[in-house]
Design a protein around this nucleic acid. Structure first.
Lengths: 230, 230
DNA sequence: GTCAATAAGATTGCTAACAATGTGGGCGGT
DNA sequence: ACCGCCCACATTGTTAGCAATCTTATTGAC
């Protein structure tokens, strides 16, 4: 019954998700102040709803809040991204191991089909398709693992490091290297070898850490951080 | 400047922490409804502050909230406790490995002193002292690891399973078994062997999972879950 | 007696106004 | 010109009241 009636019908994504997306997509740049009233206007929700979202985003580490001073987008340092990837390594390792022993035959077939799709994407130099299929593989393995706790933690961690993940995929030699690693993981999981699955998954993410450090050495990370004050 | 002026001075712990403690300590039993107005009275804060705390506690998994229906204390199932321990295993394994390579000589001395204190506690059958020194060991290793991300995640997970942790410590053979495992961990960390540290830490928590299942088989967990309706 | 419709009650979520608090800019002193 | 103080401003945190929504108990039909 509000007056706007525009974003009304498709408002099935929560204000939290939309706000998080705005941050992750860089529409709200690191350091930028987040004024509750403004956000309430922009996403047309109540100020209370905005506060709720801000509380959760602070908890996720995407923004910083100070009492009586408000919230601002928090830049995620490279060190933090590396830490996050280390944590991802052990958690996804756990999931891979459980996926190897727990999945069904249908799961393993599906996983193999993802593998061929990924190979095809790399052969065609389609970075976007590679990126999406590789993500699909990770997610599918997670699903096979039936480990909700790990899954929830991984979801929460993802948002903090998306920006970096994107950069990593852009490194020239990455798709080829990543493909090799992903195929090894899928092989291990479909062979139902828990130890192998864990090891290859961890090796993969260790290699991602290497790529992150490489990017850091190239000085890529000063690029997107404008102090930004209008 | 409120009228009460009683819990005023020592209100250095946040409403969130106090509310969480009330849940974890069982003052608010699983299934019990949490009415915002009542909680605001009880902890004398504003309703907004209570809402903020509830949002975070829902995020931590300690309570469940439904739109327009309010919040209630969420019972944590045994399966969930096992999942949480699996996640703890890999995360604390990571921390142990990093502690082994990253700690200082002083850190290692301190860790050894914790080990002797723990041995003494077990020798004297002091379950409480054993429990607290073992927790100290875990925390100290975490601190040595300098892995904030893992540490934060572990903190968040702890509250969900405290109740079970307590039960585990009460199993008769546990202190002896746990002591052995803890000493092995500390040995590995102080020998600066990352792999050993990770393995022994994971073995320890795997053994905790075993104890949890043992407790489940004994039917311990029906005990504290009264449907509770006045 | 059982079931459905309905009304009453309780609780959340929202709105609007206000109080508390931190920020920045102007003003005067040196 | 530079420094510190003070005040106006912007923003958050709180309060009170209301509307929306869910739950429960009651009533009435079959």
């Amino acid at each position: 019954m509000t007056a706007s009636g525009e974003t009304e019908a498709l408002a099935e994504v929560s204000l939290l998700d939309r706000l998080r997306l705005a941050i992750v997509h860089g529409e709200l740049t690191p350091g930028q102040r987040l004024v509750e009233a403004d956000l309430a206007m922009r996403f047309n929700g109540s100020r209370g709803a905005v506060r709720e979202a801000l509380v959760l985003l602070e908890n996720e580490g995407l923004i910083a809040r100070q009492r009586n001073r408000g919230a601002s987008v928090r830049p995620v340092s490279l060190d933090e991204a590396i830490e996050i990837t280390e944590v991802r390594a052990v958690l996804e390792g756990l999931c891979a191991a459980k996926a190897a022993t727990g999945g069904t035959a249908a799961d393993r077939r599906k996983l193999k089909s993802i593998a061929t799709a990924m190979q095809k994407a790399v052969k065609q130099n389609d970075v976007l398709a590679y990126s999406s299929t590789s993500q699909e593989a990770h997610l599918y393995i997670r699903g096979m693992a039936k480990q909700q706790t790990a899954s929830i933690v991984l979801d929460r961690l993802r948002y903090q490091s998306v920006r970096y993940q994107f950069s990593v995929a852009m490194l020239p030699a990455r798709p080829a290297q990543g493909l090799k690693e992903h195929l090894a993981i899928i092989d291990a999981v479909t062979s139902r070898s828990a130890d192998d699955a864990e090891q290859t998954m961890r090796a993969h993410l260790t290699s991602v850490i290497g790529a992150l450090q490489q990017l850091a050495a190239m000085g890529v990370f000063g690029a997107y951080v404008p102090p930004a004050r209008p």
